[in-house]
Amino acid sequence: MVTTLEKTSIRRPIGPPPHNGNGWWWSDGDDPQALAVPSWKLGTWLGLGTLTVLFAALSSAYVVRIGGERLAFALPATVWLSTALLVANSVALTIAQRRLRRKDRRFVAWLGVAALLSIGFLISQVATWQTLAAQGLFFTSNPHSSFFYVLTAVHAAHVLGGLGALVRCVYHVRVRSSFGRLRRALGMTATYWHFVDAVWLWIVALFLWTSL
């Protein structure tokens, strides 16, 4: 049963007009169900926002704690090796994504390259820590070394998480997931890795800055 009311009486004194629920800051247009960004991308970016605050909190704690004191040791040369490996890792993942977009099966090889580069990074990290330890710089030696170990260790934990994400992509290849699913998995993985690589550059820049 449908009752149609007299049209003259339907005036709404308060609130936006019922037939036009356009946004205030932005309009949703005719297709209001979703933003232009797919959910997995939105979720990934929000998650990376959280991680950004984590690293920002640790970094600002470092800056506050040292109170303008200069870095007391030289960064080991392996830091530069680590940097190169992670930059290469980002490049490899970008290539893998492009290959996948062109439906080129060889993208899997680039996933392997990215994984090898990140394992190389972890080895280089261990070497960095050993170099510092050999110089007598341990976890508790001074605030610089404490924060260097903390920041690089928290970062390394995220590198391990990234390796897990790469394994998940390979798993999707193995079980012959759909193209869309594969693209989504690789898209999330690549975005995450670019973030982890950018955090590494930030950490290096931070310690270069405090050694000025």
Binding site: G21, W26, S39, G47
Partner: peptide, 24 residues
């Protein structure tokens, strides 16, 4: 809390029914 919050924001922004604009 982080895992939950990711979900709440993404769902509200991206899973709305037809006609459910942000301002509705």
């Amino acid at each position: 809390s982080t895992m939950g919050s990711l979900n709440y924001v993404t769902t509200a922004l991206n899973m709305r029914a037809k006609g459910m604009t942000l301002m509705r």
